[in-house]
Nucleic acid binder design. Sequence first.
RNA 1: GGAGGGGUGUCCGAGUGGUUUAAGGUGACGGUCUUGAAAACCGUUGUUGUCGCAAGGCAACCGCGGGUUCGAAUCCCGCCCCCUCCGCCA
Length: 420
Amino acid sequence: MLDLKTIRENPDMVRSAVASRNDTAPIDDILKLDVDRRKVLSESENLKAKRNEVSKQIAKMKEKPAALIAEMREVGDQIKAFDEKVGQIDQQLNDLLLQIPNIPHPDTPVGKGEDDNKVVWSWGEPRKPDFEVIAHWDLGPKLDIIDFDRGTKLSGSRFYVLKGLGALLQRALTSYMLDLHIKEHGYTEIYPPYLVKSDCLYGTGSLPKFGDNIYHDEEDDLWLVPTAEVPVTNLHRDEILQPGMLPLYYVSHTACFRREKMSAGRDTRGIKRVHQFEKVEMYKFVEPEKSEDELDRLVKNAETICQQLELPYRVLALCTADISFPANRSFDLEMWAPGSNEWLEVSSCSNCGDFQARRANIRYRPEAGAKPQYVHTLNGSGLALPRVIIAIMENYQQEDGSIVVPDVLRPYMGGLELIK
RNA sequence: GGAGGGGUGUCCGAGUGGUUUAAGGUGACGGUCUUGAAAACCGUUGUUGUCGCAAGGCAACCGCGGGUUCGAAUCCCGCCCCCUCCGCCA
């Protein structure tokens, strides 16, 4: 959420920032509501000050004056009417503010769509085998490590079953990634609830605009997490973090659930875009002036995984039209999949500035006695699993269709060297 | 799911309609004293909104939301969370 003061003082800056994201914001409506709100609020507050004063006088009187009390009853009714009006305006204002995306960082390239994302650097040479690489959706069933038919039987399209060494590969990847981030990168592991209240999704910016893509339980009004970012952000919702507590680095491995309604019909084959997948998510709460450096380190942490897995990748600076709603700047990591013949997004690392902190009311005290300030939050996948599994199946594939197990994963797979 | 108890500021804790502008303690910060520290003593110390160039004023906040009243931490109604016991259960 943007600061109302920012909109009040720089409406044109906000307007053009939102436009650069191919989005629109009802700035004029907000400005009008803001003026109305303060007008009605001061009417109410003046009357309350009067009521407080008179009530204090009445308290001291032995004889309670009926006429004065009747007059104050009238004042009370007026206050109630003004407060109702303020409540309505607050609600309208809040509804509008929640729909405005974050303002892009000046270094975010301006663009109109994903074609305007900039490749900023890359690592490793994509392998060019002299045989035809089998796409993972064909190889998975052949090796009996992914069962698409039975996944569909159980739960419908975009569901799958990992079996035997496929399931083991996923488990090995998770453990390996968690261990690296915990032991080498200084993150603390979090195991959060997979079902959360609406408040949590408003906090990250997933609601109100993206509810269509999230599974919702009507009976208890709980939502299945689309990413660990949601529960982890809200760990410190409505808190003031004490001096010395920042930075906080968390890493969380969860299942992620997405309805994929907005991408209906896209990527229907394989495990690239599915309703349920595993992800290891890195998350940081930091001081505002550190967040830009922290974003660089977050990207590096994700890259380390790719490098140790020896999977070639490229890094994209997302353009204004493509960064996510709460982000001011994002870098994506993409691995080349020679069987599927496309780049796979395996990580998205974003700086959200104080956007989520303001929505979720997460503040910190720079030093004892100092005024609380909003923290900055960052999130980045480290990494998203099904796509890394695809990359391994297609990059480590041999001519006979067997898959060489990356070195770093072997200790997690009982020393296994080959999936065949 | 049933019965009972509870939720007050950084924390502990008093407070059942009006000198409560939330007692007292604790923590933190500043000062006096001291070679330095501790102790003692004195002072300061919540959040948000709003008005104001500022100094500062005003308003709201005692789990959350309503209600009663001239006036609510206090009374009434609904909800949430925690604790104890019972039931059920991976």
